[in-house]
Computed example of a mutant assay.
Amino acid sequence: MGQHPQHPVDGVQGAPAGARHVPVLLPRVAELLAPALAGRPAVLVDATLGLGGHAAALLAEHPQLTLVGLDRDQQALAVAGRRLVAFADRTHLVHAVYDRIADVLADLDIVRVDGVLFDLGVSSLQLDADERGFAYSRDAELDMRMDPTTGPTAADVLNTYPVADLARILREYGEERFAGRIAAAVVRRRASAPWARSGELVDLLYAVVPAASRRTGGHPAKRTFQALRIEVNGELEALRTALPAALDALGAGGRIVVLSYHSLEDRIVKRELAERARSRTPVDLPVELPGHGAALRLLTRGGEPATPEEIADNPRAASVRLRAAERIGDAA
């Protein structure tokens, strides 16, 4: 899964040295959301607040905007809170996974929102903190939890899952060709010593994944680390729940923008938006049945990539795909 590619901004306390804070595609995100937010009291849900880069720009651009910011990472919420202190009277920052959007809005007595933003993937805060274990380029504890206060770690997965389950995760979430071979090697290795460090896993992957595949598939650990992170954080299940809830909360003219960083995420987003952009009236009827028309109008043609200039400035932007849609009529 991709990261939140960002540019350096001074003065954000609590972020790791070298953390980057202005998210990828910010001008495009702002352009797509502006018609739903501009010139009136509006509510935006930033479902993946991260370090608050999108939120800060949108709050500054729209002085009547109220932000509901969610993040499962309490460290990220603290950093974002300091960054957004000038807008504190217009923000609600909530420690929650984005699949709790409906509950969060109900707790705030918000029935309809005007915009929703998902910037999926690993935040720079998480990637740049060595102790979190997300980056295969640095040896660390095998943690990978976006919320380090709860749930099993990547080490727990490697040390307890049966070989068949490990292979399935690597195949489905990492799209790893050598899933069976890697899973078997992981289980053999843990019989003599439990998994604890990312460097140990990288060494095993170098030994197991054929060298020839690296010429086209990149680093041999990339797909396995992606698969473990998705499993540890339940990312795809959360997205499948969060997207319908977010779309149901949009009022008439409300807009949603989603940034995905790998094909598994993008496929879920594409399917959900396309389904709601389709009429449910039988094709052989000459008129639209009441309540059966399309609920969304798609605002992008396919998944929009970052520009070559942006990718050159920050290679982490290379995998991003943006999709956006607008609600037609009022929410059901």
Rank of each mutant, 00 (worst) to 15 (best):
A96E: 10
T149D: 11
N314A: 10
K270V: 12
I328Q: 09
G302D: 12
V163Q: 08
R189T: 08
V287T: 11
L250H: 04
D130C: 01
E235Y: 14
V97S: 15
S260A: 15
S198R: 01
R223I: 03
A88Q: 09
S260W: 14
G53Q: 09
V24L: 15
E175H: 05
Y98G: 05
V43Q: 04
E200I: 04
A294L: 14
A78W: 11
R90K: 05
I256S: 06
E237S: 12
A15S: 11
L93E: 07
D139G: 02
I182A: 02
R321Y: 15
V232L: 13
D46R: 04
H262R: 05
T241M: 13
R301P: 03
L273S: 02
A57C: 08
P152I: 01
P162D: 05
R278A: 14
A184N: 08
A193H: 11
H7G: 15
G81K: 05
R280Y: 10
E231T: 03
A55W: 08
G121D: 13
D147L: 04
D114P: 04
A183L: 02
N159M: 06
T307E: 14
A249W: 07
P315R: 09
R229K: 05
E272I: 12
F118E: 01
P63W: 01
Q75K: 06
D89I: 05
V202R: 00
R240E: 15
G217Y: 15
